[in-house]
């Protein structure tokens, strides 16, 4: 009987203790999920940018995780090479810029792969992600054929020997750079030769000497990511940068001439007579000092 009693109480204690520990662990180890996102982009000077965002929460409560360390590595022949680690800013974002001439190791299908790792901390779970991309180059050339302005865009890849291989069926957006955004003029897929050509309209405004910046963009392609390429050409209309502030007008800085002249005439007429009257009274006074 006594042993039974001791057995029962100890099991009870053990159960309670385990429950407490388990609940404590559960409370202490309840970590939130994080999401690691990455984007590949190639910008106009051929540099590549990997943008990384680390988020936590869901729905309307998504917010960035600041000051988190993200480890980047790439694959070279199945070997993982550590690249670097990046720290997120206050919005949970960070980026890595890759210089244009850096050659990424590629796998058999021609993709380059970068993996990202976040190790988590006491309150946040670890997360990882992977992006893969292929390189694509764009050449823009300008030509005037029969006084029609032509733009020819060539999308190609450079193979190991240095040959240019055209890439077809890639959608290119061609536009001009404006102050707040880019005005896209045409959207076309490259043909078999990797070429899109466009007739440039005559009524696009440029700057004060007629320069425009042409922008060619591939938008969030599966393989090639986002690629932007720009080129300047003097095909825009000239805009007058020296237009003078309003000439004489009702709402301008300077009043219309007729207004100034009328006011002067009216005021001088009135004041002339006023001064005349004053002179008469002063003359009257002088008479007094003469008599007495």
């Amino acid at each position: 009987m006594k042993t039974n009693y001791i057995l029962n109480t100890t099991t009870l204690f053990l159960c309670v203790f385990c429950c407490l520990v388990a609940s404590y662990n559960a409370v202490a180890q309840k970590k939130s999920k994080t999401r690691l996102k990455a984007y590949y982009e190639k910008i106009s000077n051929d540099d590549k940018v990997i943008s990384v965002i680390l988020n936590k929460g869901s729905g309307l409560q998504i917010e960035g995780v600041p000051n988190a360390e993200i480890f980047l590595s790439m694959y070279d022949n199945e070997k993982e090479i550590e690249l670097t680690s990046l720290f997120t800013d206050s919005n949970g974002e960070t980026k890595l810029i890759i210089e244009a001439n850096y050659v990424f190791p590629k796998d058999e299908s021609g993709y380059s792969v970068i993996t990202l790792n976040y190790n988590g901390n006491d309150s946040l779970k670890a997360s990882k992600n992977k992006i893969k991309f292929k390189d694509l180059n764009i050449d823009i050339s300008f030509d005037i054929v029969d006084s029609v302005k032509q733009i020819v865009v060539y999308a190609f890849n450079i193979d190991s020997i240095g040959n240019k291989l055209p890439i077809n069926e890639v959608e290119l957006h061609i536009g001009v750079e404006r102050l707040f955004s880019t005005l896209y003029l045409q959207k076309n897929e490259t043909d078999d030769k990797g070429i899109v050509s466009m007739e440039f309209p005559n009524d696009i405004a440029g700057d004060s000497i007629g320069n425009i910046t042409l922008i060619v963009k591939i938008d969030d392609h599966r393989d090639y990511g986002t690629i932007t390429k720009s080129a300047k050409i003097n095909w825009g209309m000239i805009v007058d940068y020296n237009s003078k502030s309003n000439a004489r007008s009702l709402f301008g800085d300077e009043a219309p001439l007729w207004m100034i002249i009328s006011v002067i005439i009216i005021l001088s007429g009135a004041w002339y007579h006023f001064i005349l009257a004053i002179f008469k009274v002063l003359k009257m006074r002088r008479i007094d000092s003469g008599i007495i």
Binding site: L83, T84, F87, S90, L96, E99
Partner: peptide
């Protein structure tokens, strides 16, 4: 992060950017 202090972290990451040469 555990202490949930975000003030000082603003100064850490925004001034420099990493470049793979």
């Amino acid at each position: 992060v555990i202490a949930q202090e975000t003030e000082s972290s603003e100064k850490v990451a925004t001034e420099k950017i990493k470049v793979l040469t």
